[in-house]
């Protein structure tokens, strides 16, 4: 078991957002989480990543069979948890190259490896840039500064490819993307999909799941997972709309 969430409750400023989540993710699996806006999808992702803005009031989260909730944010990342942000933040003056090199070397240090040489690093970047079809000069620009919506999302996938996580959580990476960009994002994910990692794909639409075939689909509604199933659940949901959930 890679990730095991039991009866997770989380709140912000005393307002409960997650109201008892149960979720199990095994190595090699792709899980999709769907649900209407404001239902707690990003909150769930943030809690797994360790954002202390949210207070966990009840329940447990185990990652690689260890209690995850006490682990600091950067250590979760070094243990292989990656969050592709719904709204990636701008960091003026810090180039993607510099940012990723810092990040990658932190991961390597944690794993007892020497920092990657500049040449090796640049090679790796070239390879991954091709994968996500980003312009080669994008990496010289400051992280997300002045990026278009599509560039920001591709940059998240690019970072994921560079850092090669064990558990990748993609929070609405598909929102606002045109069909070409969507295809590229899906290609990135499918390329990285292996027996020894897993994906949690948060999406509002069924569309992305035509390109990334999930093993499981969960529907999050008002802080709870109200339905789980196979990939056909996504299609059913798309057809019937989220209103259908209110009656289940």
């Amino acid at each position: 078991m890679l990730l095991s969430i039991k009866n997770l409750h989380a709140s912000i400023n005393g307002k409960e957002i997650l109201k008892g989540i149960d979720l199990e993710v095994n190595y090699g699996e792709v899980h999709a989480i769907m649900g209407p806006n404001g239902t707690g999808k990003s909150t769930l992702a943030a809690v797994i990543a360790g954002r202390d803005l949210f207070e966990v009031t009840e329940g447990e989260v185990k990652y690689k069979d260890k209690d995850l909730l006490k682990v600091p944010v950067e250590e979760r990342a070094r243990e292989g948890i990656f969050l592709g942000f719904q709204y990636p933040v701008e960091i003026p003056g810090v180039s993607i190259t510099n940012f990723l090199r810092t990040a990658l070397n932190e991961l390597r240090k944690y794993r007892g490896l020497d920092p990657m040489s500049a040449v090796e690093f640049l090679k790796l970047m070239e390879e991954k840039k091709k994968l996500v079809e980003i312009q080669s000069n994008l990496t010289n620009r400051s992280v997300n500064e002045g990026f278009s919506g599509g560039e920001k999302k591709k940059n998240e996938i690019f970072q994921m490819a560079m850092l090669d996580p064990v558990l990748a959580i993609l929070d609405e990476t598909d929102s606002g993307l045109d069909i070409d960009a969507l295809r590229i994002v899906a290609k990135g994910v499918n390329h990285l999909r292996r027996k020894d990692n897993a994906f949690l794909i948060i999406t509002h639409y069924q569309r992305l799941l035509e390109y990334i075939i999930p093993d499981y689909v969960h529907v999050l509604f008002e802080g709870k997972i109200v339905k789980s199933g196979g990939k056909e659940l996504a299609i059913e949901l798309e057809e019937k709309g989220y209103d259908w959930l209110k009656n289940t």
Binding site: G50, E74, R78, V94, L100, A103, E106, Q159
Partner: peptide
């Protein structure tokens, strides 16, 4: 948000501040 973004990539708070300040 900037700090969390950096930390989520494995960069600790101190290094993140250093990175952001140097960018500035």
């Amino acid at each position: 948000d900037q700090l969390f973004y950096c930390q989520q990539r494995g960069i600790d708070m101190e290094s993140a501040i250093g990175l952001i300040v140097n960018g500035y």
